[in-house]
C-alpha cells in the first residue's frame, strides 16, 4: 500500500496564494457552505456551476486547474464508478433509449441521473481538495482553538497524532519486510493475503499505540495537562478578508440553490 505522504520537506513554508493563506476556519466555513449546498441538489446546471466556480478559484488557492484534476483522482474514480453502476442498474429506465447493447440499456433518464450524481460527487470532492491541500495542519489546529473555541487539549492532541501519519508509512514497509524475513508471504492466495494484511496492520497499531502512550507522557512532562490556562504563541488574527471568504461561501451556496430551483 502506498500512502499519500511525501518525503519530509526540510522547511515547512506556507502557501502565500490569496485564498490559501486565509484563516483555516474561514476556509472550512466557506467549504461547508459551498459543498453542503451542492450536496442537497441534483440539478445538473447548478452542479455544473459549482464545478466551474471551483476550477475558476483554484489559482487563487495556488493550484492550477490541471493540478486540481491530478490531486482529485480518487474523486474521478468515484465518479466513473457511479456512472458505470447506474448505466447498468438504474431502476428508472424511462425516457428515450440512447444505447441498447446486451445488458446495457442507457436511456436519457439514466444518463441524466448518472451525470447529476457524478457531477455532485465532483462538486463536493474537488473544493475540499482546494481547501485541505492548502491548509497546514498546525495552522488548522491553531485556528480551531482561536476561532472555533475547540479545546486546545484535543486540537493539539490530534495534531500530535497526525504528525505520526508520515511515520506510519515507513513503519508499514518495515513490518511488511519483517514478515517476509520471518518466512511469511501471501503468494497468490487471497485468504493468506488478507491474514497477512491484518497481522501487519495489527503490528502497526500496537506500535502506534505504544508510541502514543510514550508521547502522552512526554507531553504531560512538559505541562500539557498542568491545568494552567494555555497561551497561544501563534496568534492568528481574523481579518476582514476572512469574513469576505465566508460571505462568498454563503453567496455561492445561495446561487447553487437559486439555479437548482429556477
Amino acid at each position: 500500500m502506498t500512502l499519500p505522504t511525501a518525503a519530509p520537506r526540510a522547511s515547512l513554508q506556507r502557501s502565500d496564494a490569496l485564498l490559501a493563506r486565509r484563516t483555516p476556519v474561514a476556509k472550512i466555513v466557506f467549504l461547508a457552505l459551498f459543498t453542503t449546498s451542492a450536496l442537497f441538489t441534483r440539478d445538473v446546471a447548478a452542479l455544473g456551476f459549482a464545478l466551474v466556480v471551483t476550477f475558476a478559484v483554484a489559482p487563487l488557492f495556488g493550484i492550477t486547474p490541471w493540478g486540481l484534476l491530478r490531486r482529485g483522482w480518487p474523486a474521478l474514480l468515484g465518479a466513473a464508478t457511479v456512472v458505470l453502476s447506474l448505466a447498468l442498474f438504474a431502476a428508472d429506465r424511462s425516457g428515450t433509449v440512447l444505447v441498447d447493447f446486451g445488458p446495457i440499456v442507457i436511456t436519457s433518464t439514466v444518463l441524466g441521473n448518472a451525470l447529476s450524481l457524478a457531477l455532485r460527487l465532483l462538486a463536493i470532492a474537488l473544493p475540499s481538495i482546494l481547501v485541505f491541500s492548502t491548509t497546514d495542519p498546525t495552522d488548522l489546529a491553531d485556528s480551531l482553538i482561536q476561532h472555533a473555541r475547540v479545546s486546545p487539549r484535543f486540537a493539539i492532541g490530534a495534531l500530535a497524532a497526525f504528525r505520526l501519519v508520515g511515520l506510519l508509512g515507513d513503519e508499514w514497509r518495515m513490518i511488511a519486510m519483517a514478515r517476509r524475513a520471518r518466512g511469511i508471504d501471501a503468494g497468490r492466495n487471497p485468504v493468506r493475503w488478507f491474514t497477512l494484511f491484518a497481522s501487519t496492520a495489527f503490528g502497526l497499531l500496537v506500535g502506534a499505540i505504544r508510541r502514543g502512550t510514550r508521547l502522552a507522557v512526554a507531553m504531560d512532562a512538559r505541562g500539557f495537562d498542568s491545568g494552567l490556562p494555555r497561551t497561544v504563541a501563534r496568534p492568528m488574527p481574523w481579518r476582514p478578508a476572512d469574513w469576505l471568504l465566508v460571505a462568498a461561501g454563503a453567496l455561492l451556496a445561495a446561487a447553487i440553490q437559486l439555479i437548482a430551483h429556477r
Binding site: A201, A208, I209, G212, F224, D225
Partner: peptide
Amino acid sequence: RWRTVDIVVASILAVAFGVVFWAWGL
C-alpha cells in the same frame, strides 16, 4: 475527564483509521 493519554491514543486510532478510510474509499 479525558487524560492526555486518552486524547493522544484516541487521536492515534483516529489517524490510523483515517488512512484506512482513505484506502477503503479507493
